[in-house]
Structures are given as structure tokens and as C-alpha cells.
Write a protein that binds this DNA or RNA. Structure first.
Lengths: 209, 209
DNA sequence: TACTTTCTACCAAACGGTTGGTCTGATACT
DNA sequence: AGTATCAGACCAACCGTTTGGTAGAAAGTA
């Protein structure tokens, strides 16, 4: 693939953010890309298919997006920060460590369940990201792990939990929670809230004395 | 892409299994493919790269493999069955439900840790598999879940566990265990056995009274 | 043993197709 | 006049795959 210099291809810098119609199209393109990237993978989906999905010619796509890679990167913007914020708030909120952990797990699981497509692509396409975007993703994941680790550590020193290895506990917890994206089906047996509540309970049970 | 009929492309059916040299090459090709599929994804890795990795022209690859897709499918042959067998044995073995579950988790986690590349590709490239291979994968995953669900159910009725939703418990457990493939680094802080033991303990704690 | 045939493993090149990306000139609507 | 898009040609790069050929080992034959 041609990899033009840093600023190249940015002829479209003209884009004004004020116009509402253009912003609509842009989100439609992102939505279509997200759906296709989930179903066929980033490499497996073509710009042609994305264009078809939004009813544009593929050339017209480049009026909104400067490259396929940029499109992928933009899909992640802000998504993780949101959940990270909610989990962080729960971690720093009031209540015992046990209560806070429960709230954190709830927030995290709900975050996963409410953005299934994003989570799928986020987790599968790490290796398609340019280095800087990849670093960002890794920072976010580390921040999430740190939140959990900290609360687990607090809970241990306060007697809420009995835990020899808070780091490992955080990883186990995050695995359990993240994995819901692989089996959850909307309109299935369990609602999002039911799963989130159950997992919160399960988490404190795994750590509790 | 041209999708020839079922048996097409099998011109190489001549291949005799006796020759040791050819078998060596074949495993080398599979190993290279596995490594590349993990690093760049199935669609992202090219036959050219695989050929380069084993020191062949990409055309020569087709002396050993009838298509890229077949190469992917063959990578999975037998892998899951092995772990499935070990977990099944632990599930049907002697001991209390608590002891058996511990052994199952241990076996499963070790299976994941010892085949990191396979697990990565196995989990990421589901959507690249042809329908029959996909069905096989789904059957295997269901069988694994059933093993856990059954032992959890037994343990609950015998008082070993307190669990309202064995199905959900199995999914939570499997998520926790499967996820180790995302963070484990060989020669890291923890050995494979340490992780497997810890997770076994964690599992019975999550379910136990 | 010497000669011939067959088969294996691979080369080297080409094939048809698709890809991401660019460009152009026209055009409808605001 | 500016924005958003059409319609389509075009490109170099790369894709998975096929083909025809061939060096050399193996096997068969004398």
C-alpha cells in the first residue's frame, strides 16, 4: 500500500464542522464501517462495500475520510474514555471497597454490552492500528486494569477482600467481564442489567472472604 | 473470489504421506502461517509472506496446500479436541465437584497458555472460516461450556456450590480463563502452572459457599 | 552396473481480479 | 459562490492461484 507522507492526503482539511448534513453523513459512514469491520474484519471489508452501505460512490467517501486507516482509528475515539470515566467514577465514589467494586463491574459490563460492535472491532483489530493509536489503546487498557487493581488492593487492606495477588485478580475479573461480548445476544435470555448485576455479585464473591 | 466446487483444487491428492522431507516442509508451512496469521490476521497475511518465511516461491506453496482457506482450517485440526478431552476427563474423574472443577479449570488454562498462537487465531478468525469449519468450532465451544455447566450443576445439588445460574457461571468462568491469552507473556512474572493453579482456586471461590 | 522412466519438489512467470486511492468534469442545491 | 455528490476512468500494487517446465532423486529394467 502507498503510505504517503504524514500530512499528505489531507487536502480535505476544508471540512467545516458546522454543517449538520455533512456531520450526519459522516456518522453514517462510521456506522457502516463499524458494522462491516465487525462482520468481515478491517482487511476483509473494502471501501467499496462501505460506500455501497451508505449509498455513495467510493470516490465520494474520500470527501469525508482521508484513508481507510483513519476511518478505523476514528471509530475508537472517545469510546473507551467514556467507560473508563464511568468505571473510574465508581472506583473513586463513596462506599466500601466491596460496594465500589460491584459498581465498577456493573459499569464495565454495561459498557461492553452497549457497544458490542465497537468492542468486537476494538479487540480484534489492534494489529491493524498505526503505532500511535495502538499505544493509546494499550494505555486505556492499562488504566482500566489499574482502576480495578487499586480498589482490590484497598479492599484487601480493609478486610473486605482476601487476595494474595491483586494484579492477577484484576486480570481475572476483566477477562470474565470482557468475555460477555462473545456470547451475549440481544433479546436473549438475560437482559443487560441482569448480566451486569450478576457479574457484580460474582466479582465480590470471587474476592470476598 | 472464485469458490470452486467441493472437491475442486484437490489435484494434489497424490501426496504420499510416507516421505519425511515433505512432511517437514508441511509442518514448517503451517507453523509459519500460524505465526503470521496471529501477527497480521488471516486477511492481512499474504501467501507471499508465508512463502518467504519458509524460503519458497509462493506458487510452490500450492504443492502442499490447496488454498489459503484450507491452510487456515487445517491449523485448527485436533487442537480443540485435545483440550476438550483433558477437560472432559477431569469433569468425569473422581473427587468432589469442587475438586473436579479445579482440575478442569487447570486443564483449560494450561491448554490456552500452551497454544497461545492457535488460540489467538482460533478466536479471531472465526469469521474467515467456511461454514462447515465454523460449525465445528461452535460445536467445540458448546461442548466445553456443557462440561463446565454440568459439573457446576452437580456441585450445586451436592452443596459444594451455591449457584442460581449454572449457565451464566460457566460463561463467566470460561471468560476469565480464556482471557489469559490476551495478557499472558511467556517468561513473565507468573509461570503457566502458577496461573493455572490460581485460577482453579479462584473458580471454586467464585462458586463456593 | 548402466540406462531409462517416473515421480517429487520446486522454480519462474504469468493470470485475472481486486484493492485503496486519485482525479476530473459535470451538476444540483443552497 | 460554495457545498456535496455523481459518474466513471485510472493507477500501481498486490492478491490467491495456475501453469508449464525442470533438476534431481528414486525406481524399474536390462
Amino acid at each position: 500500500m502507498m503510505r504517503p507522507g504524514v500530512g499528505a492526503g489531507a487536502v480535505h482539511r476544508i471540512r467545516r464542522r458546522r454543517n449538520g448534513k455533512a456531520a450526519e453523513r459522516e456518522t453514517a459512514i462510521r456506522a457502516a464501517a463499524l458494522r462491516l469491520f465487525r462482520r468481515k474484519g478491517y482487511e476483509g471489508a473494502s471501501m467499496q462495500e462501505i460506500a455501497d452501505a451508505v449509498g455513495l460512490y467510493k470516490g465520494s467517501l474520500y470527501y469525508y475520510v482521508s484513508s481507510k486507516e483513519e476511518l478505523l482509528v476514528r471509530l475508537f475515539e472517545g469510546r473507551a474514555e467514556q467507560v473508563l470515566g464511568e468505571v473510574g467514577a465508581a472506583a473513586s465514589g463513596p462506599g466500601t471497597a466491596r460496594e465500589r467494586l460491584r459498581a465498577m463491574v456493573r459499569a464495565y459490563v454495561l459498557g461492553v454490552l452497549r457497544h458490542l460492535d465497537s468492542v468486537h472491532v476494538y479487540l480484534r483489530e489492534e494489529h491493524s492500528l498505526p503505532p500511535t493509536a495502538l499505544k493509546q489503546v494499550q494505555r486505556e487498557q492499562q488504566a482500566m486494569r489499574d482502576h480495578f487493581e487499586r480498589v482490590i488492593l484497598e479492599g484487601t487492606s480493609q478486610g473486605d477482600f482476601v487476595e494474595r495477588d491483586p494484579r492477577l485478580a484484576a486480570l481475572a475479573l476483566l477477562g470474565m467481564c470482557t468475555w460477555v461480548h462473545r456470547w451475549y445476544r440481544p433479546r436473549g435470555r438475560l437482559t443487560e442489567n441482569a448480566i451486569a448485576d450478576d457479574y457484580g455479585e460474582r466479582a465480590v464473591r470471587m474476592l470476598g472472604p
